[in-house]
């Protein structure tokens, strides 16, 4: 009997699944350390808080993306849905004169509905998520331009107050959006770890055929996951419209790549079944800190962000393969 289990001493086992997240955490610590040593102002706690402020919407979008990627799928439509939400909010508030309390639930519903529809097509017609969400991406961007091809500024008092108010703790502050984003992450993490929906998400990502044979509601879970991603994208869009105070069809171009990168750097397997929302938070922070370092440095140009993200993607995907290969044997 010991021969069956002897290869895996019990002591080290629980840590194995946290390795990717720990790797991201150490990467973040190293980057922060380097920043703090090189630039004096960097060690100010507000710098980190500002990373949250500037990336609150990305965090929400990436949280939704994490659900999708955990099932082994992908959602390319998130950036476009974000843009559509800013556009829809701006248009309804400014041109149709809707009150904010009607606009908010409506745009969130639209986002979730788009995700739901894509999930249905993916599940029932067995078309690759890549293609379906690509169509969703085109659709949402296209819808933006049917509303308007130019930027619509938002002057609604609720929106401006959300943009300008600060939540203070002593000398530090964050925007209300950060609080929203953190609530989303906490709720998301709870759903993933403590509800059947969350566990089914992992199970489908681990082995969809088994999930079906074990009697898990595969169809419902898969569709819900895309609806969650659509909802998170819409919420991210709302937060972005707080941040930008405008609706524009060119907002959030390429955001799907940032979201995917954050999720992967956060240690979630692109093939599904393994990962944590806390990793995604760390992934978003890594992206934010890279940008902050480049801003602080002044001599580095913004495009280094993309190159570094690409390199990190490479390293982390390779790391995943190595861990995966070791697990298999």
């Amino acid at each position: 009997m010991t021969s069956l289990t002897g290869r895996w001493p019990g002591l080290r086992r629980p840590q194995r699944k946290y390795i990717p997240v720990l790797a991201t955490l150490s990467l973040l610590a190293v980057m922060y350390g380097v920043g703090a040593v090189r630039y004096e102002a960097f060690s100010d706690g507000q710098v980190i808080l500002n990373v949250f402020v500037d990336n609150a919407f990305l965090l929400v979008v990436a949280a939704g993306m994490t659900f999708v990627i955990l099932t082994g799928g992908i959602d390319l439509s998130v950036g476009s849905v974000v843009a559509l939400t800013t556009m829809l909010s701006a248009s309804l508030l400014q041109e149709q004169g809707w009150p904010p309390y009607a606009v908010l639930p409506f745009v969130l519903f639209v986002g979730a509905l788009l995700g739901f529809a894509m999930g249905c097509i993916i599940h029932y017609f067995e078309i690759q998520p890549f293609i379906v969400t690509l169509a969703g991406m085109f659709l949402a961007r296209g819808l933006c331009y049917t509303i308007s091809t130019s930027s619509i500024p938002i002057t609604d008092p609720f929106w401006t107050s959300m943009a300008q108010s600060k939540v203070r703790f002593g000398e530090y502050f964050v925007s209300p959006s950060v609080i929203v984003a953190l609530v989303v992450v906490i709720v998301g993490a709870y759903v993933l770890s403590h509800t059947r929906l969350g566990r089914n998400t992992y199970a489908i990502g681990g082995n969809p055929a088994s999930a079906l044979l074990m009697g898990l509601p595969v169809a419902r879970t898969q569709i819900t996951v895309y609806a969650i991603s659509g909802f998170c994208s819409a919420l991210g869009g709302v937060l972005l419209s707080f941040y930008m105070l405008s609706g524009y069809g060119l907002h959030a171009v390429g955001m799907e790549l940032d979201a995917i990168a954050a999720v992967v750097i956060g240690g979630t397997l692109l093939t599904g079944g393994s990962g944590y929302l806390v990793g995604t938070v760390l992934g978003v922070l890594v992206l934010g800190v890279i940008q902050t370092i480049i801003t602080f440095d002044g001599t580095l140009s913004s495009w280094w962000t993309k190159i570094v993200i690409g390199a990190l993607l490479f390293v982390f995907i390779l790391l995943q393969r190595v861990i995966g290969a070791r697990k298999a044997r």
């Binding site: 566990r199 089914n200 082995n207 055929a209 088994s210 074990m214 009697g215 898990l216 079944g273 393994s274």
Partner: peptide
């Protein structure tokens, strides 16, 4: 095996029928 390798042993026994 028709189980999920990415979940714990305990979870594989109870998934879909977890006590809540």
């Amino acid at each position: 095996i028709n189980l999920c390798p990415n979940l714990s042993v305990a979870e594989n026994i109870f998934i879909g029928r977890e006590p809540r």
